[in-house]
């Protein structure tokens, strides 16, 4: 039983595209503040197929951050149904949600969110630690991931010794290390100049070509154009624009 569990720690990365791995039905999110209710998401229907690269495009205040939090299992909807890898995400305990995040979601943040006191190699291991991977496997896996984003020579560098683009590449290596179902990127190029932003997008493309599913949230139509599909969100409602909007 123990051996079986060990095997489960890291999901095998499978690249069979086509099936829906994320399904949202009529997702509503309300916030209550001082007796007033504000509805941030007004019934979102949204699905993502395995191997897709989807951009969620919307201005600030459109509700895209709230949607991202729900997709990332950091928050749960007020009503509606959300299935991730066939599993229903509802008002589960913090502990269960943490496990789901660990297995299913690879976060990439605008501000990188690297631990400043840890070097690149240690930063990449973060999700693997919580997946309870043995140290040896963790390190070799982290090295592999850093090589994938072209940072094999910066493994022992600390975040403050790296450029913004390099830091974001460390963050991408960290996000893919545990083989999550979805890479969830929140304005991944927001803190980068155009050139390094383009480099990050190139990495996204190659990851997508490997068969990885990417959901990218952005307000920048140019960046959204890198995705295979764009959905627009405005005022809490989603408009499945399709490719022709890009």
């Amino acid at each position: 039983m123990r051996a079986g569990k060990r095997h489960d720690r890291l999901k095998q990365f499978t690249a069979a595209p086509g099936e829906d791995i994320l399904v949202m039905k009529n997702i509503v999110k309300e916030y209550h503040m001082g007796g007033e209710t504000s509805t941030v998401l007004k019934g979102i229907d949204f699905s993502v197929k395995k191997g897709e690269f989807v951009a969620i495009l919307g201005p600030s205040g459109s509700g895209k951050s709230t949607l991202m939090n729900i997709i990332g299992c950091l928050d749960v909807p007020t009503s509606g149904e959300y299935y991730l890898s066939g599993e229903k995400i509802a008002d589960q305990s913090e502990k269960v949600l943490a496990h789901i995040r660990n297995k299913e979601i690879g976060f990439i943040f605008q501000s990188f969110q690297l631990l400043q006191k840890q070097n690149a190699l240690e930063n990449v291991q973060l999700a693997l630690i919580y997946a309870d991977l043995p140290e040896k496997e963790r390190i070799s896996r982290a090295k592999e991931m850093l090589a994938k984003v072209g940072l094999e020579d910066k493994m022992y560098h600390y975040p403050n010794q790296m450029s913004g683009g390099q830091q974001q590449r460390v963050a991408i290596a960290r996000a893919i290390a545990a083989n999550p179902t979805i890479l969830l990127a929140d304005e991944p190029t927001g803190a980068l100049d155009q050139k390094t932003g383009r480099q990050v997008m190139e990495i996204f493309h190659s990851l997508n070509e490997e068969g990885r599913t990417i959901i990218m949230i952005t307000h920048d139509a140019n960046i959204a154009g890198h995705a295979g599909r764009i959905v627009r969100i405005l005022d809490g409602e989603m408009d499945e624009g399709g490719l022709e909007d890009a």
Partner: peptide, 16 residues
């Protein structure tokens, strides 16, 4: 606080 948020996003359960 930020680090705690990040660790939680990466899958650290509250107990950990």
């Amino acid at each position: 606080t930020k680090e705690i948020g990040l660790r939680k996003a990466m899958g650290a359960e509250p107990g950990l």
